[in-house]
């Protein structure tokens, strides 16, 4: 899907009248940002389900979605910075609300792992991490709405760009968004399968070694226990 999207970007979508060829960055930067932000919100929803059901599988899902979203957020910051350099002549502009707010969201989520790692008790760790994920997840749409309401027209707005754009731009953007969403889901499943395999192996090793002391064998970890 992403390959199709990128083929459409370079062979089908026209160059932007204002930004020219640079506008091609839009098709990787914006879908990545949207998926990362939705990933953070999904992490909050999973965390709420964890607090409600006390089922560790929701904590694991919340952890993994936040993990992949943070990786995508790194990509958003890097591609956004390249786009800013090409269109504004600067790598970073501190008085641009969209950029700074995304950086704040990224830095907020960067504290998720230190928070988990700092709590030794696994039950407390998952509970506090879920509370953090809910609060931070609620902050994401609020932050985004605040930026939208801010009177700044320097940063290209996705909704206005896609609604007033020719159908070829909208179609390419939608295919890129679908591709990025599928990539996100695939990476989440991949990460989840890896975590499940690791925990099952550790549990098996503990059982075979007859060792009940989990911390002594595995050491401290930020990852949730299943």
């Amino acid at each position: 899907m992403l390959t199709i999207a990128f083929a459409l970007v370079f062979f089908y979508a026209p160059n932007d009248a204002d930004q020219g060829f640079i506008f091609k960055i839009f098709y990787v930067h914006v879908p990545m940002a949207i998926v990362a932000l939705f990933g953070f919100v999904a992490g909050a929803v999973f965390a709420a389900l964890h607090l409600r059901s006390q089922d560790s599988k929701w904590d694991m899902r919340s952890y993994v979605t936040i993990h992949i979203s943070v990786i995508l957020a790194v990509g958003v910051l890097v591609t956004g910075s390249i786009w800013a350099r090409a269109s504004w002549g600067h790598w970073w502009i501190w008085d641009e609300p969209m950029l700074v707010s995304f950086l704040i969201v990224f830095l907020l989520y960067a504290t998720y792992w230190p928070l988990r790692f700092s709590i030794e008790d696994k039950e407390k760790q998952s509970r506090y991490a879920s509370v953090f994920a809910i609060v931070a997840g609620a902050f994401v749409p609020l932050n985004f709405a605040a930026v939208r309401m801010a009177e700044s027209f320097t940063h290209p707005q996705t909704a206005t760009t896609t609604t007033s754009a020719p159908p070829s731009v909208t179609l390419t953007f939608l295919v890129a968004l679908a591709g990025m969403t599928l990539l996100f889901i695939t990476l989440c499943k991949y990460e989840m399968a890896s975590k499940h395999a690791t925990f099952r192996l550790r549990a098996l090793r503990r059982r075979l070694a007859g060792d009940e002391d989990e911390l002594a064998l595995n050491g401290r970890s930020a990852a949730p226990q299943l």
């Binding site: 990128f6 932007d16 204002d18 930004q19 020219g20 060829f21 640079i22 091609k24 960055i25 990787v28 930067h29 990545m32 990509g75 890097v78 591609t79 390249i82 786009w83 350099r85 090409a86 269109s87």
Partner: peptide, 19 residues
């Protein structure tokens, strides 16, 4: 103003390569 294709190309390539 929009960058010419030869100047813009390296930024677009850099963004996609970063991804």
């Amino acid at each position: 103003p929009a960058l010419p294709l030869d100047a813009a190309g390296k930024y677009v390539a850099a963004a996609y390569l970063a991804f």
